[in-house]
Nucleic acid binder design. Structure first.
Length: 494
RNA sequence: GCGACGGUCGUCCAGUUUGGUCUAGGACAUCAGAUUGCCAAUCUGGUAACCCGGGUUCAAAUCCCGGCCGUCGCACCA
């Protein structure tokens, strides 16, 4: 069975996982999607799992920063300078091109990032470059910045929607470190929205203009990247590391990856291992994942070493997490621009150090899509029933509560059981249609358990618990149902 | 952003070629009632759509123009 993007998309739309933003209006812009009731529930649980497996496990600190930030932040971060691409537009057909790339391709002449627009115009003129589509003349170079600019207050002070959540962490670092009595290495985490004015947003949750990130910035002493006692906890975790072109994948323990030189140090290996363990718990098939080391051309402007955590899906390899060693790029930039000293004291060295940063920048929306696709299952043995085999702790509905019929007090009894459980768990009560149909509906939204109230319940106060994947049922005392669910959930987690 | 193709109930599709019984049809899904009572059962009834704006015409889902959205390709993608 091959699951494809369209099947996942259809399920997502039909079952309220996500859908286009502003869809009742004809001018709804592309690149904006909303999470519906099932989707937001699953997303919340995904974030909670992330907290559990990464933030709490590692003793990180979580913050929630502003989405709109001042111009200075992005001058310091380099986004004002580097996030702008020089573009040229054909005056005849309107096609636009990256000026620097086009010149390099046609003339082999390198255009440095900082080259002024009029110099680039000069190059186009010198080589008499024309539009490849229609041979039309190019207009003069302009700049495209991927950041959304906003105006604050009546004077419309220049500011920007953050293009990545992490700048808040860098800007707040000094205060967090001081007030929370931080010690290196220190992980600071944040979940929130970022905004990028993508030229061509596509494929629903996979390339959005407004999207969720879960970011972790680990501040560390660059001289102590191999001094990590907690590395031993994960040293035998299997990492799948691929070559730059993604061709061959090496499976090796975190420990061996370092000795083979695939990963530069223990700190990086430790977090790549945590990330692998986390994704295994999301239900993503980690056997279809890889850490791909990026070439210099592919890396972001701030990264010195970068691994992308990528997962194989029906539409190809998809980048879910960017793991960037940002060195002191950010704190140095903010230190200079703000004129603040962002060094911290490292008691081991008895001296001040400007921390380096290793980052795990996770795309939540893409992860949600991947989980849906990897958990989507058509059961050929049972009429091709569609089962979303979500982990119980990610399922939008944990327990469906279904009276076999409503008469003879079964409906009443079932509603009673429902109200006993609904405060603690995500439950769904359903008495309409045949029992089989109701089971199938629950399977499609990934509910792992269905509790059925039948005539026997009225005799001995037992109910059946039906398991989504196996379709097997077992009888449980109604009074022990809550405990049963709690145990099942705990068993799934560990 | 450019180019090609496309856009009809929640979903999938018929209808567009050749404008007119289209007052837009079906299947699945959904809702109500009946019947049944453990795996998408049956019967009856209902809800529900021509992407938006303009034009041509006696008449537009159908033709023309513009916009928006989608798929693919190019380009782009911290």
């Amino acid at each position: 069975m091959v699951v494809n993007y369209d099947q996942v998309m259809k399920l997502a739309l039909e079952r309220g996982f996500y859908f286009p933003s502003c869809e009742i209006y004809p001018d709804a812009p592309a690149g904006f999607w909303e999470y519906g009731p099932t989707g937001v529930n699953m997303k919340n649980k995904f974030v909670e799992l992330w907290r559990r497996e990464l933030v709490r496990r590692d003793g990180m600190m979580e913050i929630d920063g502003s989405q709109i930030m001042s111009r200075s932040v992005f001058v310091a971060s380099g986004h004002i300078g580097n996030f702008t691409d020089p573009i040229v537009k054909c005056t005849k057909c309107g096609s636009t091109f990256r000026a620097d790339r086009y010149i390099l391709e046609k003339t082999n002449e390198n255009v440095p990032e900082r080259m002024a627009d009029n110099e680039i115009n000069g190059l186009i003129e010198k080589h008499n470059l024309r539009c490849p589509n229609c041979k039309g003349e190019f207009g003069s170079v302009s700049r495209f910045n991927m950041m959304f600019r906003v105006g604050i207050g009546p004077a419309a002070e220049e500011a920007y929607l953050r293009p990545e959540t992490c700048q808040a962490i860098f800007v707040d670092f000094a205060r967090i470190f001081k007030t929370m009595r931080g010690r290196l290495p220190l992980g600071v985490a944040q979940v929130g929205k970022s905004f990028r004015n993508e030229i061509a947003p596509r494929q629903s949750l996979l390339r959005l203009r407004e999207f969720y990130q879960a970011e972790i910035e680990v501040f560390c002493n660059p001289n102590r990247l191999d001094e990590m006692s907690k590395f031993d906890e994960v040293k035998n975790t299997i990492l799948r590391i691929s070559s730059q072109d993604g061709g061959s994948i090496t499976e090796t323990t975190a420990h061996e990856a370092i000795s083979k030189g695939l990963i530069p140090n223990k700190l990086v290996a430790y977090y790549l291992a945590l990330l692998t363990l986390f994704y295994a718990k999301t239900g993503v098939d980690v056997k279809r994942s890889r850490f791909r080391k990026l070439s210099d051309e592919e890396k972001a402007f701030y990264a010195s070493v970068a691994f992308d955590f990528e997962v194989e899906t029906s539409i190809g390899w998809l980048e879910l997490v960017a793991c960037n060693y940002r060195s002191d790029y950010d704190l140095k930039g903010h230190g200079i621009t703000s004129k603040q000293n962002l060094e911290v004291f490292d008691p081991t060295d008895q001296k001040k150090v400007l921390p380096h940063v290793f980052e795990l920048s996770m795309g939540i929306d893409r992860s949600i899509y991947t989980i849906l696709e990897h958990c989507y299952y058509e059961d050929e043995k049972h009429d091709d029933r569609v089962v979303l085999r979500l982990k119980p702790y990610l399922a939008p509905i944990l327990v469906g509560i279904l009276p076999l019929m409503t008469k003879d007090g079964l409906g009443q009894k079932a509603r009673k059981i429902h109200s006993d459980l609904k405060f603690e768990y995500d439950t769904f009560y359903d008495e309409s249609g045949s029992i089989g149909r109701r089971y199938r509906r629950l399977e499609e939204v990934g509910a792992p358990f269905a509790v059925t109230i039948d005539p026997e319940t009225m005799q001995d106060d037992t109910v059946t618990v039906r398991h989504r994947d196996t379709m097997l049922q077992e009888r449980v005392k109604a009074t022990e149902l809550r405990q049963y669910i709690q145990d099942a959930l705990a068993a799934a987690r560990n």
